[in-house]
Design a binder for these strands. Structure first.
Length: 577
RNA sequence: CGGGGUGUGGCUCAGCCCGGUUAGAGCGCCUGGUUCGGGACCAGGAGGCCGGAGGUUCGAAUCCUCUCACCCCGACCA
C-alpha cells in the first residue's frame, strides 16, 4: 500500500477527548475517529487491524466446528419480552422509536429462535453457532475510546447440547479456542472465574488482559495459580477468635459517631477488627402476598462487604433505604447493630472471620449509642456465617502458598454455561433417543473485537506510538523512502517495494514527496509496524538498506544482496517473540 | 442518574473574571523559493455566524437565562 494513495491521517498532538493510551494512539495513528459519544468510524488502518483479529477468531471458531452466521441487529420487541430481557436490560437496550424493534445488544434470543424449529432431535446436536457482528448497547457512560462503546463488534457464539456433559465439552472447546485466539493476537491474558461455586452448575470465566485502563479489578496470586474478579475473590482469613472474659453487654454514649473510623478514634484504638460493621439489607418478596425479608450482615471493622457475594447467597438482595432503616432497626445508619433490633424477624449473618467472636462493639440500634462486649455466640441467637467480605491487597491465598495482588484488567472475552434459561423461555426442545421432550442446554461465548486491539495497544506501546507484532499488525513492513524531489531514491524504493510485495509481504510504502524524513520516521513509529525499512541516498551510496525494529529500536545496515534473506530472518524473529 | 469540566479556523489552545478597534497564536493547509536522516526555513496567502436560542446593553466570544453536545469522576452494566 502506497502512503500517498492511502487515507492515513496521523495526528501530531494528543486529541483533547482521549485520555487512555490506546484511545490516544488509535486516534493519532489514524485508525479511528469519533462520530458521537461511544460511536467510532473505523478508518482504513483501524479496519485493517480489526479484520486481522476477526480472521484469527474465524479460524479458531471454525477449528472447533463452529458454523458462522450473520444475524440481524434489528429484532422484534416481542422476542425480547418472551425471555424477560426487554425489562431486564431496561435502558441499556436501544429501542427503535417508530417500530416495535430493538437494536440487539446480544443474540441469545435470535439464535435460539433459529434453533427451536431446526434442532429438534438429539441427532441434530451438538452445535456451535457463531457470528461476528455489530452490537448496540446504550451504555450510560461510554469511555476509553473503543473499550466501551455504544456500538461495537462482537464475536458471539452459542452452543446447543443435549446433555450437561455435552455442555461441558462445548464449553471446554470454546475455552480452548479463546486461549488460541488471544495467544495469536499477542495478548498476555489470564482467566478469572466470574461466578463463585455458590451458583451450582453454572460456570463462567472471563478472559482478562492486565491494563491500567481496565474497568475490572481483579486479584492475582504471585505464583499466577489463582486469579479472580475482586467481587468474588477469596483469601486466607483468620478467625479473630474469642477472648472469653465473659463480660456482660454494655451500652455507652457515642455522640455523632457514625463510621468505624470515628468510633475507633473515639475509643482511641487502632485495631478495628472487633468493631463489627453492620449493614441492613432487604430481600424483596419473591411472590405476591409474601413479605420482604430483612437481613443484618456483619463484617470486621477493617473489612468491606462484598455485595456480589451477598447477592450470590441471597438472590435479589439490596441495601436498605435510609427511610427503611429506622423502621427496621430503630436507629439510623451508623448506630445499627445485631443486638436490640426493633424488628425481631431480622435475620442476622456475619462473615466467617467473626465466627463465634466475643467482645465486639457495634451499634446499639439507638441513635448515638453503641454496645460493647457483644458475644455472637451468647447474644445473637440463630446467627449464620458466610464469606461476605472483600479481599484486600496483599493477603494470602486460601492455602497460604502465595500472596495476592490487586490490579486492573480489561475483559476481552467471556464464556458461560447458560443452561436452559433461554431454551426454556422460548420453548426450544429436542426429542431424545426415547422420543421424550428435553430442553436444549446452551452455552454463550463472547469476544470484543475492538477491545482486543485496544487491549493489545495498552500492553504494547511506548512514548512514540504503537508497537505491533505478529498476526494483528496492519502491515509486515513499513518502507520509507528518504527521497528528494529529484533523485532516484524513490525509484529504488519502489523497486524494493515491488519485490517485497512479490515475496508475499504486506508493505506500507511511505512514498510521499516533499515530506521531510523526520516526519516519515515519526509517523512510522506512531503507526508501529514491526519492521521499518529505510531507503536513502546515504545508505544507497554504500549499496546498503537499513532495517529498524520498532520494538527494540535496533538498526541494521544490510547489503542489498543480503536484504531478502535478512528481512526474512528479522521478521521471523519478531514473530517468534 | 449525581458531581466536576469544556465548547473559539482542520488540530491543540489563548482571549472570558474586569463588555469597547478589524478575534489571536502554534501546528496543519495553499503558492513560490531554499532545504532534505528524527515532526525544517523564508516570503506571501486562504480559512471563524466564538456550540445553539433568547435576554441585558449604545455595544456581547466576554454578563444573565434556557438548551444542545462532548470529556472526566462516581453510580450502573458486561
Amino acid at each position: 500500500m502506497k502512503f500517498s494513495q492511502y487515507f492515513l491521517p496521523t495526528l501530531k498532538e494528543v486529541p483533547s477527548d482521549a485520555v487512555i493510551p490506546s484511545h490516544i494512539l488509535m486516534v493519532r495513528a489514524g485508525m479511528i475517529r469519533q462520530l458521537t459519544a461511544g460511536v467510532y468510524s473505523y478508518l482504513p488502518l483501524g479496519l485493517r487491524v480489526f479484520k486481522k483479529i476477526e480472521k484469527i477468531v474465524r479460524e479458531e471458531m471454525d477449528a472447533i466446528g463452529g458454523s458462522e452466521f450473520y444475524l440481524p441487529a434489528l429484532s422484534p420487541n416481542e422476542l425480547w419480552a418472551e425471555t424477560g430481557r426487554l425489562e431486564d436490560y431496561g435502558d441499556d437496550i436501544f429501542r427503535i422509536k417508530n417500530r416495535e424493534l430493538v437494536l440487539a445488544p446480544t443474540h441469545e434470543e435470535v439464535f435460539t429462535s433459529i434453533a427451536k424449529p431446526n434442532l429438534i432431535s438429539y441427532k441434530n446436536l451438538p452445535q456451535i453457532w457463531y457470528q461476528i457482528q455489530t452490537k448496540f448497547r446504550n451504555e450510560p457512560r461510554p469511555r476509553g475510546g473503543v473499550l466501551r462503546g455504544r456500538q461495537f463488534t462482537m464475536k458471539d457464539a452459542y452452543s446447543f447440547d443435549a446433555t450437561w456433559e455435552g455442555l461441558d465439552e462445548s464449553y471446554n472447546k470454546n475455552a480452548q479456542a479463546y486461549r488460541n485466539i488471544f495467544t495469536r493476537c499477542g495478548l498476555k491474558f489470564f482467566t478469572v472465574t466470574a461466578f463463585s461455586g455458590a451458583m451450582g452448575g453454572s460456570e463462567s470465566e472471563e478472559f482478562m488482559v492486565e491494563a491500567e485502563a481496565g474497568e475490572d479489578t481483579v486479584v492475582i496470586s504471585s505464583d499466577n495459580k489463582y486469579s479472580s474478579n475482586l467481587e468474588v475473590a477469596v483469601s486466607f482469613s483468620e478467625n479473630i477468635g474469642r477472648k472469653n472474659s465473659g463480660l456482660e453487654i454494655e451500652e455507652f454514649h457515642t455522640p455523632n459517631i457514625k463510621s468505624i473510623e470515628e468510633l475507633a478514634g473515639f475509643l482511641k484504638i487502632t485495631d478495628k477488627s472487633r468493631l463489627a460493621k453492620s449493614r441492613l439489607f432487604v430481600i424483596p418478596a419473591k411472590s405476591e402476598g409474601k413479605k420482604d425479608e430483612y437481613l443484618l450482615a456483619l463484617v470486621c471493622g477493617d473489612d468491606e462487604f462484598s455485595e456480589t457475594k451477598l447477592a450470590k447467597i441471597f438472590a435479589g438482595i439490596r441495601p436498605g433505604h435510609p427511610e427503611e432503616l429506622f423502621d427496621i432497626a430503630g436507629a439510623e445508619a451508623g448506630s445499627i447493630g445485631p443486638v436490640n433490633l426493633k424488628n425481631k424477624t431480622v435475620k442476622i449473618i456475619a462473615d466467617l472471620k467473626l465466627k463465634d467472636a466475643d467482645e465486639l462493639i457495634s451499634g446499639a440500634c439507638k441513635n448515638d449509642y453503641h454496645i460493647k462486649n457483644i458475644d455472637l455466640k451468647r447474644d445473637v441467637v440463630g446467627i449464620e456465617y458466610f464469606d461476605i467480605r472483600t479481599v484486600k491487597d496483599g493477603e494470602e491465598t486460601v492455602d497460604r502458598s502465595s500472596k495476592l495482588r490487586m490490579t486492573k484488567a480489561i475483559e476481552v472475552g467471556h464464556i458461560f454455561k447458560l443452561g436452559t434459561r433461554y431454551a426454556e423461555a422460548l420453548g426450544a426442545k429436542y426429542l431424545d433417543v426415547n422420543g421424550k421432550d428435553n430442553v436444549i442446554i446452551m452455552g454463550s461465548y463472547g469476544i470484543g473485537i475492538e477491545r482486543i486491539a485496544a487491549a493489545y495497544i495498552e500492553q504494547n506501546h511506548d512514548k512514540d506510538g504503537i508497537i505491533w507484532s505478529g498476526e494483528i499488525s496492519p502491515f509486515d513492513i513499513h518502507l520509507i523512502s528518504v527521497n528528494k524531489k529529484s533523485d532516484n531514491i524513490k525509484a529504488e524504493a519502489e523497486k524494493i517495494y515491488n519485490e517485497l510485495i512479490t515475496a508475499g509481504y504486506e508493505v506500507l510504502f511511505d512514498d510521499r514527496d516533499d515530506i521531510s524524513p523526520g516526519v516519515k520516521f515519526k509517523d512510522a513509529d506512531l503507526i508501529g509496524v514491526p519492521v521499518q525499512v529505510v531507503v536513502s541516498d546515504k545508505n544507497m551510496k554504500n549499496g546498503e538498506i537499513e532495517i529498524k525494529e520498532r520494538r527494540t529500536g535496533d538498526r541494521y545496515r544490510i547489503q542489498i544482496s543480503d536484504f531478502n534473506q535478512k528481512i526474512k530472518e528479522i521478521i521471523g524473529n519478531i514473530n517468534k517473540n
